[in-house]
């Protein structure tokens, strides 16, 4: 099977869906190389190179550069989605969505409900998230809990090239607004990705690894770290299940509960802030529905309740590490009542 990067997998998904369906358009800042600027067209393919080559194949009618005004073009995309197009919007950093909360939270997320199910909003907002690139506290946040909190939005967090492609195709075909979050550290990760189109459904967790002692639920970039920790733990005789929910909304609570019922122990690894975060939500669901199965307290491995630091040493310490996951697992395994 062909090996492709996470970035290439996303590009594949956009290209295949634009070929399949004329109503799919992409828009965002610098995705054709800078509107009104002189020089080479499509020199970069957006700030992270994901849309490279789309302009040449699909033209300026369907690949649109926008001004640096997220509030305007996210609102325009929501309107376009309601009136028959399937826009895929690129937002450089999820942090920037703060200026379009009304468009997303009060408008796009509500249309289906407030128009009695007669209006659909097939819009995808692609954005990067996460720390680790030295981009400082306004370009490094992991904000998926803010969107998962809102009914009417779907929240997708692919952790591998294979899932990135299948989940983006599924997102484009979905009739609801989708917040699609790409960890910027993962763009150069390589994995097996078929050439053709395929889907990965929402609300179905991936069992990355199966073991009977402990369940580790991890999201996005943390899946790789959880898997690395699980490999180290296996050498110590602790067999872990690593579960990647892949979508935070909808959330595959059945698989999480089923796994905890098998193992009796749970560690959650999440790069979002700890208060009212994804780990807190998953822990509460397990406490409510699988309390009787638990042999030890649920442990969350998250960053501290702090903005993302810029100093490289502090930024490194901020992100949950393999060593912290391993230590959390050992503490759960050694718990005695």
């Amino acid at each position: 099977m062909p090996q492709k990067s996470y970035r290439q997998a996303l590009n594949d998904a956009l290209r295949l869906e634009m070929r399949r369906d004329d109503s799919v358009i992409v828009l965002g800042e610098d995705i054709t190389g800078g509107k009104g600027a002189t020089g080479e067209q499509d020199a970069w393919g957006g700030a992270f190179g994901v849309t490279k080559g789309l302009l040449k194949e699909f033209g300026e009618e369907r690949v649109l550069d926008t001004p640096i005004t997220e509030s305007a073009f996210v609102g325009a995309a929501a309107g376009a989605a309601m009136t028959g197009l399937r826009p895929v919007v690129e937002i450089m950093f999820v942090d920037f969505l703060g200026v379009c909360f009304d468009q997303i939270i009060n408008q796009a997320a509500k249309f289906r409900y407030m128009f009695g199910g007669k209006a659909v909003t097939p819009m995808v907002l692609r954005a990067t998230y996460g720390a680790g690139s030295g981009s400082a506290s306004q370009h490094s946040q992991t904000l998926y809990p803010l969107f998962a909190h809102i009914p009417g939005l779907k929240v997708v967090i692919p952790s591998s090239p294979y899932d990135a492609k299948g989940l983006l195709i599924q997102s484009i075909r979905d009739n609801d607004p989708v917040i699609f979050l790409e960890n910027k550290i993962l763009y150069d990760e390589v994995g097996e990705v078929p050439d053709g189109a395929y889907t990965v459904p929402f609300g179905e967790a991936n069992f990355v690894r199966e073991g009977s002692d402990l369940t580790i639920v991890a999201l996005g970039r943390m899946v790789g770290r959880a898997t690395a920790a699980a490999a180290k733990l296996a050498e110590q005789g602790v067999e872990c299940t690593v579960l990647d929910p892949r979508t935070l909304s909808p959330l595959d609570t059945d698989s999480i509960i089923e796994s905890v019922e098998e193992t009796g122990r749970l560690v959650i690894v999440d790069e979002s802030y700890p208060r009212c975060g994804a780990a807190a939500d998953i822990a509460s669901i397990v406490a409510e529905h699988a309390f009787g199965a638990l042999k030890a307290p649920v442990v969350k491995v998250t960053p501290p309740h702090s903005p993302v630091p810029y100093a490289p040493e502090l930024e490194g310490a901020f992100i949950p590490s393999v060593a912290r996951i391993e230590a959390a697992a050992q503490s759960v395994m050694s718990f005695r009542r």
Partner: peptide, 16 residues
């Protein structure tokens, strides 16, 4: 086993 189920589903989710 789960992986057998996942392999079949992955195949069935291919376009066409």
């Amino acid at each position: 086993k789960r992986e057998m189920v996942d392999d079949v589903l992955r195949f069935m989710r291919t376009d066409g």
